[in-house]
Amino acid sequence: MVRIHPSILSADFVNLERDLARIATADGVHLDVMDAHFVPNLTFGLPMVQRIAEVTDLPIDVHLMIDDPDTWALQYAIGGVDSVTFHAEATRDAVALARELRARGTRAAIAVKPGTEVDLVAEHLREFDMVLIMTVEPGFGGQSFMPGMMPKLETLRARARDLGIDVALQVDGGITDDTLPIAAAAGADVFVAGSAVYGHADPAERIAALRAAGGGEAVAAAAGDAPAGSLER
C-alpha cells in the first residue's frame, strides 16, 4: 500500500489551515520540527504541532530533527499525533525512547541520515513502528533524491519479513512520480512529499498521482511480498 504524507514545509504558513484542508485526501501530514542545531535550519516547535492537531483530522507524523530527543520527544506524544520520529544520530537510547513513546500512546519511529548505516536499527527493529530512511540530507526541502539509499530499505524490509513483523518504512526527500516507484520497489510504503504536492495548483490531484505512481498493492509484490507497515490506529 502507498501512503502519502505531504510535508507542510512546502505549504503557505500564513494560510496553513487552508493548505491543510487542501490535502484532506492524504494519509497523514508530515511536520518537520527543526532546531537549527541538529540541522542547519529552524522551523517550529510544540505550539505549532498542538495547534495543527486542533484544526486537522489527518494523522500527524512528527519528524524531530533536533538535538536531545531523549528529553524533548515525549512532549510531542499528544492527542492527534499518530507517530513521533526521532533521529538515530541524536538519541542516547533509541530503544528506551521508543518504548516510552509507545507507552504514551504514540507510535515510535526512528530516522537515519544518508550517511548512517541501518545495522543497529535492524537489530532492534521490533522496537519501532516505523523507520524513516532519509533520501536527502535533512534540513532543507527541494533536494534531489538519493537512489543509493535503496539498499537500506531492502535490508530493513527483508529483516521485517524474517521477523514476521509489521513495520512501516518511510522515505523523505526528492519524492516525485519518478522516484516514488523506485523507493516503493525497494520496500517503502510511506512517502513524504513536499513540493511534489504543494508545488502544484491542485494538491489533491497530485496526491492521487503519487499514489498511482506507486502502483498501490502491486508495490508489495515488487518488494518481494513484504508486509506493509501500518500507521493506522
Rank of each mutant, 00 (worst) to 15 (best):
V2S: 07
P6W: 08
S10H: 11
A11C: 11
A11M: 06
V14S: 12
N15S: 12
N15P: 00
N15M: 10
R18I: 01
D19N: 10
G28A: 15
V29A: 01
V29Q: 05
H30V: 00
L31D: 03
D32N: 07
V33D: 01
F38R: 07
N41R: 06
L42P: 04
G45W: 13
G45T: 01
M48K: 12
M48W: 14
Q50K: 15
R51E: 14
R51Q: 15
A53P: 06
V55P: 07
T56E: 07
M65D: 09
M65T: 00
D68V: 09
P69Y: 02
W72Q: 03
A73T: 07
L74E: 03
Q75L: 06
Q75F: 03
I78P: 02
G79D: 15
G80W: 03
V81S: 00
D82T: 15
S83Y: 08
V84T: 03
T85L: 13
H87L: 10
A88S: 14
E89A: 13
T91H: 01
R92T: 08
D93Y: 03
D93Q: 09
D93G: 01
V95W: 06
V95P: 08
R99T: 06
R102W: 00
R104C: 02
R104K: 12
R107C: 02
R107Q: 12
A108C: 09
G115D: 13
G115H: 11
E117H: 10
V121S: 00
E123R: 15
L125Y: 03
L125G: 03
L125R: 08
D129K: 03
M134E: 00
E137L: 07
G141S: 09
G142E: 06
G142D: 10
G142Y: 07
Q143E: 10
S144Y: 00
F145M: 02
G148R: 13
G148H: 12
L153G: 06
L156C: 11
A158N: 05
R159L: 01
R161F: 04
L163K: 04
G164K: 13
V167G: 06
V167S: 00
A168H: 10
Q170H: 11
Q170K: 11
D172V: 10
D172S: 07
G173R: 04
G173N: 05
G174T: 06
I175T: 05
T176I: 07
D178T: 13
L180E: 09
P181E: 02
I182C: 07
A183D: 09
A183C: 05
D189A: 05
V190P: 08
F191G: 03
V192N: 04
V192R: 12
V197S: 05
Y198P: 13
Y198L: 12
G199Y: 13
H200F: 15
H200T: 06
A204I: 10
A208Q: 14
A209G: 11
E217F: 11
A220C: 13
A223D: 04
A223F: 03
A223M: 10
D225N: 15
D225S: 14
G229H: 07
S230M: 04
L231M: 12
E232H: 15
